[in-house]
Design a protein around this nucleic acid. Structure first.
Lengths: 348, 348
DNA sequence: CTGAAAGCGCTAACAA
DNA sequence: TTGTTAGCGCTTTCAG
């Protein structure tokens, strides 16, 4: 069968609305509306007639119209910096799953780490009047920049990254403690000079991981050498550049904790360029445990961040907030887990 | 500053609409509407007054209302099977970029390879009345299953995967020729027994790559051994399982062309489990050239598929179609490029 | 169980 | 340059 752009039958020019169904059946639009939503209040026979005529005419529910009337869109807006990062792709996928299961559809906006793009994207998303919004803000975002969302009374859940001084629901990982686990693991292998690659104070996860790093070193009685902390966003590039920078130092590290798996992949690649290899003469730990972490060579030791739970949790938390706008603000920290694989070994 | 859920000032209980701005300024809503859209027809002074009052009152444009009136939503629906696959994440990201640049927002739905989920998701997306839709259908989708979109006159662009017997715009890669390039490369290295791992006749890319495989072998005077063709979707799992299956044969291959990079990653992992290594005693080629392909160990020889161009192209093609619904249907095939890296070597 | 009527917030004729 | 009017397609009282 070939289906093309040729005019289809069913449509006699005019769009099919509740009105036309009502007229053809000689009932009111109110009845049609109720019948299509399967209301128990309308007679079974009427429902059947209405539903089958609707199907026959190819009626399509118009959510814009319904939204105007009900002030609900059943859309959930998702504002992310980057969906090309597998960690965020996994989060988005989990959100989408949970949202669909709850009868919601995702309106998506991304903005990299650009505050000005974020500003534009969030304002636009807001105009669509989503019932709520899940936000992972660009680095450096402060509370004032999302004040307009709060003012518009749109329920917002912050995911993964948290904006300072903003009392809004949040779900993320206990990043500081994840980094501490990473350090503990390396110290237990015998490492004493451990770099921190990637992570910036511009985002909460960066701050948390950097302070977890300091805390853990202190706990083990190890000095914090700022020269071993190479900051940046969690990109492959940052890992590549970062590992080189720390290895150029006089007293180089024997291991590195990376801000996330992407940075770790970059760092491993950087090592290789220098004729070295993670899991042999250097140790690397990532964070997130994205799908490819297990499949790298060597497989990446990392901190598993429960992105499936986190994404689903964000969607569910948002839906609860939508239904009970006045309930107390929540802050959920998921406990990360260390996953030991091949990229960490005792120092040479 | 702390911004929380506390009631904000500006809002005196009621929502701020064109109406309230009009009343406060003692002008009509029509004027306000025009002023906010910066219409040249309204006096500069009035515009200023309106715009500044709107800002002051925290007015938010209501796109549901506007859409009801104009029958345009400025939303582009994207139906994808999986955004966790980096190839599709990269496509989505490119689409989002181009859409945002053109003042459109993305409404997202995913459905894995499930026809029933796809059915539900597409119907829902349609109810939001997006101005158009970009579709990468689940495997096994036939034209009848998207007929309702055509009937509803919603402009659709097919991306990457193409549904048989459906005369709708399409943009994708010339997959057959990509696979031919891969085979040519392996043959030039001296390989004669080459497996094809992943790819299924349920999707057009699978069919195209499988027939490219046959065509290239024939061209080189090599026999097609069905035992070397292991079908499946383009997943890491399929690669892992597939490589094992073909290597168990009596006359095993010395190289494998994989349906995509994910399958190639899986295949390389499978090799390692068997004590072998791509780029040393076996050759593997992927397809897509996702970001991590260059960073694998060994770096993956693959077919670059221009996902950035393809995603942007899809968005632009759709926007053109929206503006000119009657223009001739287009079918754009982007020419893939072979990228030789470390995973391919002459046979041992 | 069904209908009448109003209205959500916006835009587009058209008139002034 | 601005106002009047109507109406997009739906849901929701409230009556019957």
């Amino acid at each position: 069968m070939t289906i093309g752009l040729a005019p289809e039958p069913a449509q006699d020019g005019g769009r099919v609305t509740l009105q036309v169904i009502a007229e053809k059946l000689d009932v009111s639009t109110a009845t049609v509306s109720l019948a299509l939503r399967d209301s128990p209040v309308v007679a079974e026979a009427t429902k059947q007639k209405v539903q089958s005529l609707a199907r026959e005419l190819g009626y399509v529910y118009n959510r814009s119209a319904a939204s105007l009337r009900t002030a609900r869109t059943n859309m959930i807006a998702v504002g992310f910096h980057d969906i090309t990062n597998p960690y965020f792709a996994e989060l988005l996928s989990a959100i989408e799953d949970a949202a669909t299961a709850a009868g919601r559809t995702i309106l998506l906006g991304t903005y990299g780490e650009s505050l000005s793009r974020q500003e534009r994207v969030l304002r636009t998303l807001k105009e669509y009047r989503p019932d709520g919004m899940i936000l992972c803000a660009a680095g450096g975002t402060d509370a004032a920049e999302v004040a307009h969302l709060v003012a518009a009374r749109i329920p917002v859940v912050q995911l993964s990254r948290e904006i300072d001084g903003l009392t809004l629901d949040f779900i993320g990982a206990d990043d500081g403690s994840g980094t501490e686990m990473a350090i503990d693991h390396l110290v237990s292998l015998g490492h004493r000079r451990i770099a921190l690659i990637g992570g910036t104070d511009a985002i909460s996860t960066g701050r948390a991981r950097r302070s977890g790093y300091r805390r853990a070193l202190a706990r083990h009685g190890l000095p914090v050498d700022p020269g071993l902390m190479h900051d940046g966003y969690g990109t492959r590039e940052a890992g590549l550049v970062g590992i080189r920078a720390v290895l150029e130092r006089d007293d180089p590290p024997t291991a590195a904790v990376c801000f996330n798996d992407l940075a770790a992949f970059g760092a491993m690649l950087g090592l290789r360029h220098l004729g070295r290899e993670a899991g042999r003469d250097f140790s690397v730990i990532g964070c997130d445990d994205v799908q490819e972490a297990a499949q790298w060579y060597p497989a990446l030791t990392t901190i598993h961040n429960r992105q499936d739970e986190m994404g689903r949790g964000a969607a569910e938390m948002l839906i609860r907030r939508i239904e009970q706008p006045a309930s107390p603000v929540q802050r959920v920290l998921l406990q990360p887990k260390l996953v030991v694989r091949g990229s960490t070994v005792p120092p040479a």
